[in-house]
Write a protein that binds this DNA or RNA. Structure first.
Lengths: 221, 221
DNA sequence: ATTTTTTTTTAGCTTCGTCTAAATTTTAAA
DNA sequence: TTTAAAATTTAGACGAAGCTAAAAAAAAAT
């Protein structure tokens, strides 16, 4: 499957925004892409139809695994070209971004893999950002209990252990389920309770609960 | 000025066809670009409006100096990337063309000049075709008398020496003037006369006449 | 619990590059 | 030289990706 430059740019930007925002919203994305909200809505419908993201009107969107895979491959291309421009053509780290924005849309897996090899399979681009692996797999997908999440890092609930009726009741009341996106905002050392930011609200959870909620998130390691 | 990928492809292809055809025609170009004649006509109107080519409805087209300059810069980019792909990424000469078709449309003069430098300012691409110079100037534009033209090489009449009335009368009768495109098809050794192919017709000229007609053409040296 | 403000979506229009089908012009043939 | 065939252009349409302005929904404020 091949995607247009535009589609790739949307996916890439959503991925980037997802790292620090619970759910990406129309205005936020329009802003990041320097386009208008109406254009974003149009594209969201298209990408949703292609099952590259979850889109509920008025709610926001987040990438599906398929969408994430594409976003990562665009980012891989971008960062490898940046590395090439800086390392081989001696451009400054501040000059490479614009050129890489164009080069990243050349879809030719073999080309990118050969480039990777030629460059010595670098792990980081000139800005220090990690370069995703060749296989398109998310080497950077982390899974930890909510209690161990780094602060301000957004992720999605992927598993709940100890499924007692009492706990499920509590989760239902707090509106937490598989797929819910959230981030830990604060750790209170007094009782190890956590302040959790969700799309609209901020809630507090006990450590006991947090230990049983597992989160998937993409990190830069 | 920046041109779209489409515009660049049309210009590049016209340039290529001009090397071996008197005047590029709609069907021929549609064929080369794998598009339809109607699409070609549309684009010709646009490029004509931008003064990148001469276009007379139903007659065909040829590049203006401005159009030639752009075509050459696209070809420069194409061939430098081909060289890079073959020399640095170890692709076979038969694999590089498709990738270069995409890379060639990245318009960033500094990038291309740095690439050129990085590659050691190569003169020929992996197919043996010459790489146009950085300044966009036509290093490859040759000027010779018609009598000395290589066979089957098309070019345009650019000068006529010895402008006697008799000679001008003859030229007028043969419908040859400044800008006329033609190629030498045969040399008859018996009397050094030449068989000349023009757009519709084939004529014969004496050596005396051919010595006084000068031609500009783009060659691969 | 309304009302106001903000956000998001819809509707309709624009440009670019393409297409098909019909009309026109040029070239070739009878 | 009139007719038939081929090449070219015009007319009208479409899909992508964008825009503006108006409508609708959600969130915030009174």
């Amino acid at each position: 499957m091949n995607y247009s430059t535009s589609e790739e740019n949307y996916l890439k930007t959503i991925f980037r925004l997802q790292e620090t925002e619970a759910v990406v919203t129309t205005n936020r994305l329009a802003d990041a892409l320097k386009t208008k909200p109406a254009s974003v809505t149009d594209m969201m419908k298209k990408l949703n139809a292609k099952k590259l993201l979850h889109y509920k009107p008025y709610y926001g969107f987040s990438l599906t695994p398929a969408g994430t895979k594409i976003a990562l491959s665009v980012i891989r291309r971008h960062r490898l070209w940046e590395y090439f421009l800086a390392e081989k053509l001696h451009f400054g780290w501040d000059e490479v971004h614009g050129m890489a924005e164009q080069l990243e849309h050349i879809q030719h897996k073999k080309l990118i893999d050969r480039l990777d090899e030629f460059l010595g399979r670098p792990a980081f681009d000139p800005h220090g950002d990690p370069i995703p692996a060749s296989n398109g797999k998310i080497k950077t997908l982390q899974k930890t209990s909510l209690a161990q999440m780094p602060l301000n890092q957004y992720g999605s609930v992927c598993q709940v252990t100890n499924q007692s009726a009492e706990m499920l009741e509590l989760l239902q009341h707090k509106k937490i389920g598989i797929g819910t996106r959230l981030a830990v905002k604060k750790h209170f050392h007094f009782d190890q309770s956590l302040e959790i930011k969700m799309k609209q609200t901020t809630i507090t959870l006990s450590q006991e609960l947090a230990n049983n909620i597992f989160i998937n998130y993409e990190t830069k390691i």
